[in-house]
């Protein structure tokens, strides 16, 4: 077994410690900013749907604000957005660099894309269900949690999986400019030092993470689609 690792990944033994700590950084990035971005994305997606004209909490101002903000943020390439947000990140988490400094940028880079997808999922829900809920006397919050979100679990899971893949992509970019993680590891050893085996290792690990998440997602969709 050890022999096999040595033959396939000649640089692994020397770099394993660094690899594991990079992987941990990536997992922290994914868990912390991913969780925050998911919650914010769902909240903003819901706001877009309920505040839209004809929505259950119609509010022109809120709708236009988020609608425009999403358009603007999505138009800026992530690598530029990161640099742009350094001052904001310093104000919120105290630093604009390193692992902690990446959180704000990752959230701003993901939420607009994700909330648009949530909006699309929720607005495809049969409007008759909303009407029936109103006729039953349900209040807006009950409709949001009990109908919009609960009846859209398969759709929300699907767009979460799609967003997760692009999210892994931007954590790698974040890594390349100082946040650490396996993106940074791949650039340093795979690109600058030219260790092909380390690139293959990173690719394999990324594919594994994405497959696991997609497997869980598919299971959830299967269990919640009737």
């Amino acid at each position: 077994m050890e022999n096999l690792v040595n033959t396939l990944l000649p640089n692994f033994e020397r770099l394993s410690e660094e690899f594991y700590s990079s992987l941990l950084d990536t997992l922290i990035m994914v868990l912390v900013s991913g969780t925050i971005a998911w919650v914010l994305g769902v909240v903003i997606g819901v706001l877009l749907v309920v505040c839209k004209k004809g929505g259950i909490l119609e509010n022109r101002f809120v709708y236009i604000f988020f609608d425009r903000a999403i358009d603007v943020l999505r138009a800026i390439p992530f690598i530029i957005l990161m640099v742009l947000l350094i001052p904001l990140s310093r104000a919120i988490v105290g630093t604009g660099s390193g692992l902690t400094g990446s959180f704000v940028a990752l959230i701003f880079g993901t939420v607009p894309f994700f909330s648009r997808q949530i909006e699309s999922v929720l607005s495809h829900l049969d409007s008759g269900l909303i009407e029936a809920s109103k006729a039953m006397g349900l209040r807006p919050l009950e409709i949001i949690f009990g109908v919009y979100l609960r009846e859209s679990i398969p759709g929300i899971t699907r767009v979460t999986m799609i967003t997760f893949v692009s999210f892994i992509g931007i954590t790698a970019i974040a890594g390349a400019i100082g946040a650490g993680g396996i993106g940074d590891f791949a650039i340093r050893y795979g690109y600058q030092m030219g260790y092909r085996d380390m690139i293959w290792l990173v690719v394999a690990v990324v594919l594994l993470i994405i497959s696991i998440v997609q497997g869980i997602g598919k299971l959830i969709i299967k269990k919640t689609t009737f």
Binding site: D126, L129, E131, A132, A135, V147, R150, E151, I153, F226
Partner: peptide, 13 residues
């Protein structure tokens, strides 16, 4: 006031 609809509008989940 109960209400029923042409397309039933039952919650599928």
């Amino acid at each position: 006031i109960g209400m029923i609809f042409q397309h039933f509008n039952l919650m599928p989940s």
